Simulated assay, not measured.
Amino acid sequence: MKKTLVVSYTPREQSNTKKLVDFFVEHAQNKTEITFLDLTKDTPDLLLEKNLNLYVNRNFGGVALNDEEQKILSKNDKMVVQLLDADRIVVASPMYNMSLPATVKAWVDAVIQAGKTFEQTENGPRGLCDGKQALVLMTSGSDFTIEPLKSMNFATPLLNACLGLMGITTENSTAFGLQQYPDKVESMLAMCKEEIKAVSEKWY
């Protein structure tokens, strides 16, 4: 049975993003072994002075860390293991201010690790997660499918690029404009659910 990692950031009550996550789980739970990472409760460590330098020394410099130093990196390392252990990844998040919420970007920064999920070559970075596939579920209040906001959507392109850096191919299901078009909310969510169902059936 394939393993699926569901990375979810849905802190708002009555979250439309959570409705999409719940639909995916309902449709896929008997077809795959699911691991949940709720970023509202298990937040990645930000890359700050102490842990960033330990990471650079270890992953780029080959420096052996002692137990105490390794412990400092253990939370983000656990998230790397979750990613590497999964065949399929679902990342679910709303869009904040044209980009990813800081907590979701922190997860991206945690799992993009040299020597583990990508390696540097003469031709640039090469992903080490070939064969893994991801589904990005994203919602927004405004419509980022048309200009002038379409060119201001930095969220899905950023997430797709970061997953691609690790060698993970990505599909997207988005519901943009949920506050802008209140009369279309249910139809937009229904369309996303059909897309989720199609991806799930293709995956499993």
Rank of each mutant, 00 (worst) to 15 (best):
residue 174 T to V: 10
residue 184 K to P: 00
residue 158 L to D: 12
residue 153 N to R: 08
residue 184 K to T: 04
residue 154 F to V: 10
residue 149 L to G: 11
residue 165 L to I: 04
residue 152 M to C: 12
residue 195 E to Q: 15
residue 163 L to T: 03
residue 188 M to P: 02
residue 168 I to F: 08
residue 185 V to P: 01
residue 181 Y to T: 05
residue 166 M to H: 04
residue 155 A to T: 08
residue 157 P to V: 01
residue 157 P to M: 04
residue 165 L to Q: 08
residue 199 V to G: 11
residue 199 V to T: 11
residue 184 K to S: 07
residue 187 S to A: 15
residue 183 D to H: 13
residue 166 M to F: 06
residue 155 A to Y: 11
residue 189 L to S: 00
residue 191 M to G: 14
residue 160 N to L: 08
residue 157 P to Y: 03
residue 193 K to Q: 15
residue 157 P to E: 04
residue 173 S to G: 05
residue 185 V to Q: 05
residue 171 E to C: 09
residue 195 E to S: 13
residue 185 V to R: 05
residue 167 G to S: 11
residue 162 C to G: 06
residue 156 T to M: 03
residue 190 A to K: 14
residue 199 V to K: 14
residue 150 K to L: 12
residue 161 A to Y: 08
residue 151 S to K: 15
residue 183 D to L: 10
residue 167 G to E: 09
residue 155 A to E: 01
residue 180 Q to S: 08
residue 186 E to P: 08
residue 188 M to I: 03
residue 150 K to E: 10
residue 152 M to D: 06
residue 194 E to G: 13
residue 202 K to F: 14
residue 152 M to L: 15
residue 189 L to V: 00
residue 151 S to N: 13
residue 185 V to C: 08
residue 169 T to Q: 14
residue 164 G to F: 02
residue 152 M to S: 12
residue 201 E to Q: 14
residue 202 K to Q: 14
residue 173 S to A: 12
residue 183 D to N: 11
residue 196 I to W: 07
residue 179 Q to E: 15
residue 175 A to H: 00
residue 171 E to V: 07
residue 175 A to G: 00
residue 169 T to A: 12
residue 167 G to I: 13
residue 182 P to H: 00
residue 202 K to G: 15
residue 166 M to I: 06
residue 154 F to A: 14
residue 166 M to T: 05
residue 151 S to C: 12
residue 185 V to S: 06
residue 187 S to W: 04
residue 170 T to F: 06
residue 163 L to P: 02
residue 170 T to C: 09
residue 175 A to K: 04
residue 191 M to F: 13
residue 154 F to M: 13
residue 195 E to C: 07
residue 200 S to Q: 11
residue 164 G to M: 03
residue 184 K to M: 04
residue 152 M to G: 06
residue 192 C to R: 02
residue 202 K to M: 15
residue 161 A to H: 11
residue 182 P to T: 02
residue 182 P to Q: 03
residue 165 L to W: 08
residue 181 Y to L: 07
residue 168 I to Y: 10
residue 187 S to P: 01
residue 183 D to P: 04
residue 169 T to C: 11
residue 172 N to R: 03
residue 181 Y to N: 07
residue 199 V to S: 15
residue 185 V to N: 02
residue 156 T to L: 02
residue 174 T to G: 06
